[in-house]
Design a protein around this nucleic acid. Structure first.
Lengths: 208, 208
DNA sequence: TGTACATCAGTGAACGCGCGTTCACTGATGTAC
DNA sequence: TGTACATCAGTGAACGCGCGTTCACTGATGTAC
């Protein structure tokens, strides 16, 4: 029994980050105390400061972890979409459907977006963290904008399109859907917002 | 000079709420100290506790004030839209245009939405405040949903429409646009998101 | 194979500061009779 | 018209608690020779 809980190095650090993310999404960064994190993880305060030199470094590590996970999810989903349909538009539409389904099938409500949480408390953080956060939004913009412009080559839209705004609307729908879903305690709001975004993309490139 | 600054009663309370809103949108509720508010307003701490029995009552008053202002803005804008075009669809489209223009013409970036800020720190607040916040979203839903269903009577959509989600998308676009605009420090993002929402509404009821 | 040293992943105690809250009190204005 | 009292909009000092941070120290594991 004693050796049952084998400890991998870096394990504690990851546990701190996971617990911190849940707490920050529920109460905000300032109200998330180091005290409660170490209580949940089972170390002492000094143990925390071994992993992070101060609370600001915790914030930075949380942001980096969030961006990494976020990128991976998006890559996986939209790669699958393209595997399922060999056309830039329809592969994208399948991807958006999968994206919506992923949120619809979560066992419990999505806890929220760390970028949004940090955004509404950004005066607490240094420029480095704010830059990371901005970069994560720009990554969404780039990903979706490139896809939209690729689609436009095959399906030229009849009316002029604000590609940048239409690309941003992917992230915007997620942020908006998360907030409304949380405020109304309704898990279906977010996936339905994404499906509406999908409708708009389809209408934009409609050939009829 | 001494009587120049004439004090109206309730003036101090309103000043506290205005200063608090700006601070909360920048740093979050927990990091907004009573100390900084009274320094900005020019009273003592006891003066603050004369107006609010504790910090929770400040939060509640902020929420109530926010909802009131919010309702007034929406009423004005969409009433003007209907004055300018005597048709449920086109009056609404004009209203959305005015709404986007309002955000585009702000002298500086919109500071953000208190509902969203509170949402991402909701464990700090009691049920009463969370209920107020949920009610404010439901008011948006009701307002837009009723309008969309009115439009549908004159312009029956060719495909089935998720009216609830399409109504929610108004608030969702604003929340999403505010977050992206803030993260990228780009004031144009929010109005452009609203114009895309307008495109979707038009496409939904398109008669061609 | 044994020894010396370095690194890893923490412990335990103490710190000072800022925060929200309380309490007794006050001067100016409003109201009843 | 004057007096008594109540209410409004605060003041000033003190409080205790929780928080982030620091510092000296430690036992287990890894590495060099």
């Amino acid at each position: 029994m004693l050796e049952a809980a084998e400890k991998k190095p870096r394990d504690t650090r990851e546990k701190i980050l996971a617990v911190a993310e849940a707490a920050v999404l529920a109460k905000g960064f300032a109200s998330t105390s180091i005290e409660e994190l170490i209580a949940a993880v089972g170390i002492t305060k000094s143990g925390f400061f071994y992993h992070f030199k101060d609370k600001g470094e915790l914030a930075k590590a949380m942001m980096l972890r969030y961006i990494e996970q976020d990128t991976k999810v998006l890559n996986d989903i939209f790669q699958r979409g393209d595997e399922l349909h060999d056309d830039p538009l329809h592969g994208f539409l399948v991807g958006l459907k999968l994206f919506a389904e992923m949120f619809a099938n979560l066992p419990e409500a999505h806890p929220g977006c760390l970028a949004a949480s940090f955004c509404y408390q950004d005066q607490l953080f240094n420029g480095e963290i704010r830059d990371l956060n901005a970069a994560s939004v720009l990554a969404w913009r780039k990903r979706f904008r490139e896809r939209l412009e690729l689609i436009a080559k095959t399906y030229p839209p009849k009316q002029p399109v604000d590609f940048e705004a239409l690309a941003d609307m992917a992230a915007s729908s997620v942020e908006g859907g998360l907030i409304l879903g949380r405020l109304l305690k309704d898990q279906t709001i977010l996936p339905r917002q994404i499906l509406l975004y999908r409708d708009l993309v389809r209408a934009t490139f409609a050939s009829d």
